[in-house]
Design a protein around this nucleic acid. Sequence first.
DNA 1: TCTGGGGTCCTAGGACCC
DNA 2: TCTGGGGTCCTAGGACCC
Length: 396
Amino acid sequence: MADQATILHADLDSFYASVEQRDDPGLRGRPVLVGGGVVLAASYEAKAYGVRTPMGIAQARALCPGAVLVPPRMKAYSAASKAVFEVFRDTTPIVEGISIDEAFLEVGGLLKIRGTPTEIAARLRAEVRERAGLPITVGVARTKFLAKVASGVGKPDGLLVVQPGEELAFLHPLPVERLWGVGPVTAAKLRDRQIRTVGHVARIGEAALVTMLGAHAGRHLHALAHNRDPRRVRVGHRRGSIGSQCALGRRPRPFAELEATLAALVDRVTRRMRAANRAGRTVTLRLRFGDFSRATRSRSLLKATVHTRPILETALGLLTAARPLIEERGITLVGVAVGNLDSDGSVQLELPFDDPHDEGLDSALDAVRDRFGSSSVTRAASLGRELNPSVPLLPD
DNA sequence: TCTGGGGTCCTAGGACCC
DNA sequence: TCTGGGGTCCTAGGACCC
């Protein structure tokens, strides 16, 4: 392991809410909620009232009656993210994006040209503020894991450096929930055994953790509690699946409506696949039911594809097979994902088409029409417009 | 605290192959 | 003839992340 803290974890603060406050001065200093049914992001003014994500809007309003609710503007967030990642890449070539609002940066080896990691991190924060107008917190440490913990502790709008000699003293008093990979289930298992802090985790043996949590999770947690994390910052990560889902609420849905919704979701997913030039082979149907139980059903095609029709037919087949389950429990969410994406990046399209973004239209709707008749097609088209407001499913 | 939409990784059994 | 060891792929589920 390197003996210097050279890994930065940069994490934008309340990202969506900060973008809203940046773009509307009237929102600055006020509690802001971004969301529709649930809170997608809350400004720190709102978090002070106990608002968290993903909390229902009604509950958030009850906690913070003065909050301003703003609908999400995904295009603005994606543009803001691009601007911030430009700052990242101007700082160092070794940037690993984790999500729309956070990344790891390796800054070892830049000492002579850009200064110490602490200096680089301070300048990075200033530049993100200057060029993107957004607050960001940076954690600096020797491991990815600890850099991430540091940015979490350093929030909001902070810079926290954990030097090699201070690591365990910093880490051990923290609650177990701070460990990456400890969610509600694992935290409850640990709490049942009076294990509340990272220090407690570090003091029990690896074997006991493995018994408690399984082989991988046990070893992983044991290593993290001792700040052992050999993962390097990796450039050029490619996603393994592309998916889309749609919450349906609690009211019952006719089966044909589910099929139409699924058609619209598949259309959206395959558009994104073609835009990204990634073909996929495994189609996964995701369902959630009235009692909050879930199910997934998947089927692998013989050959990877970017085309709407084979993916839609596979997805509809999975949905039909799951019909008894759906009718028994009541469905509240339907989703589809395509995985096993081509890894080489050189997709051979099976059929030529002029505009890859328009290919899904007829093909998707033909498949629905063949099976379900034209009322489902109309329904799929209108759902498609709801799901893809910027890309109409049918020509106007 | 009754829950959105986008993902990742791990586990485990069964089929199938040599 | 009733049986080893090792490997890969498929499928389903679960936990977790932002």
